[in-house]
Computed example of a mutant assay.
Amino acid sequence: MSKSLQLLSLISKSLIIIQLAICCLQCISATKIISSNSSNSDDIDKNFDDKPKLFVNTDNCGLKKPTAAIDGYIIGGSEATAGQFPWQVSLQKRQSGLWLHTCGAVVLNKRWLLTAAHCINGLSEQSLRALVGTHLLNVKPPGTTGQAAVYRISKIIKHQDFSADNMANNLALIRLTAAINLDNSDGLINSVCLPNTGDKFTQYVTLSGWGLTTVSGSGGQQQQQQQPVTSNKLMFVSDVPIVSLPKCRSIYGMNWIREGMLCAGAPKGQQSPKGFCQGDNGGPLIQTDPNGRAILVGISSFNARCASPDGTPDVFVEISNYRQWIDKNAV
C-alpha cells in the first residue's frame, strides 16, 4: 500500500473515532438531562427502597369530628364525645384474667403508637393491648360505637436513655401486630400530627385521658388513691396554659425539669384545679393549629399532685425534642 493510501486510511479511522466520541458525549449529556428532570420510577436510585424511611404525617392527621363538650371532669375538665379525640388510645394490661386500663397512648399512624416509657417499663408485648376508636372504656369491641377495635402488640421500643428515677426521656413507641383501619373508621380513629424538630409552643393546650376524676387525701399523687373515682368516659381539659421551663424549674428543681420536658398548668388562683392523674399518663397533650389540626405537643409524664390547688404544673415529654428519635425508630 502506498504512503498516501496509508495516510488516508489513518485519517478515516481518526474521523470515525472522533465521531464515536462525540456521540458518547451527547448520550452522556442526554442521560444527565433525563436523570435530573424525569420523575419516572425507573430513574430513581435502585437502592432507595432499602434506605430508612422517615416518619411522615398522614394527609388527614390531627383532624376530628365536630363535637360539643359536656360538663364533667378529668380532674376539672369535660366529657369527650365520640370522635372528638380520635387519636386517643387506651393501653390495657392483663391482670387476673381481665384487661384493665393502665395508661394512655396516641396513634401516630396505622402501625405505631406513642406513650410514656414508665407505662410499659418491665412489661412484655404479650401482657398489653391497645383499644382504639372509642371514648368509652366499657365498650366490647367491635361494640356499638362501630369502629372500636383491640390491637395486640408486636414490639415495644423504650427510649434508650429513659430513667425511672427522674423520668428523663420518658417516651416509648409501640408497634401493633396489625394495621389500624384509618380509612374506614367514620372519623372515630385518626392519627395525630407530629411537630417539627425544635418547634416551641406557647399559650394554651388540651389534655385528655381516662384517669382518676376525683381524689381524696392531702398527700402527693401516690397518697391520693383512697376511694379513687375513675372514668369510663374519656375526659379532657382545655385552656391549660404552658409554663416556661425556668418557672417550672423554680418549682420542681433543676434535677427534675430537664431539656425535653414541658410543663403546663394554671398558677394558683387563676383557674380551678385541673390536670392529669393516675391513668392519664402516656396520653396526649395537643394544640390545634390555624388549620384545625391537632399537633402533639407532649405526652403526660409526671406531676407532684393530681390537679394541684397550689398551682404546681404537670410535666410532659416535649415531643418536638424527640422528633428525630421517632423518625429513626417508627419505621
Rank of each mutant, 00 (worst) to 15 (best):
L136C: 07
N170R: 05
N190L: 02
A178P: 01
Y151A: 02
A164I: 02
V150A: 02
S185D: 10
V150F: 07
N190V: 01
K140A: 04
S191T: 03
F162Q: 04
T145M: 04
V132F: 05
A179R: 15
H159K: 06
L131R: 10
A179N: 15
I180S: 09
K155Y: 13
S191A: 15
N184F: 04
K158R: 13
I153W: 12
P195H: 10
K155M: 11
I156K: 13
Q160R: 13
S154F: 02
H135T: 13
I153G: 08
I153A: 04
D183W: 00
A164D: 08
A168Y: 07
A164M: 06
P142G: 05
T145D: 15
L194P: 10
S163K: 11
K155W: 05
A148S: 15
F162R: 06
A168G: 09
M167W: 09
S163F: 01
L188M: 13
L171N: 04
G146Q: 06
V139H: 03
N184I: 00
G133A: 07
L131V: 07
D186P: 00
V150K: 02
F162S: 05
I189K: 15
I156F: 07
T145W: 05
H159T: 03
I156P: 10
A179E: 15
S191C: 05
R175F: 02
T134W: 03
G143E: 10
V192M: 04
I189V: 14
N138R: 08
H159G: 08
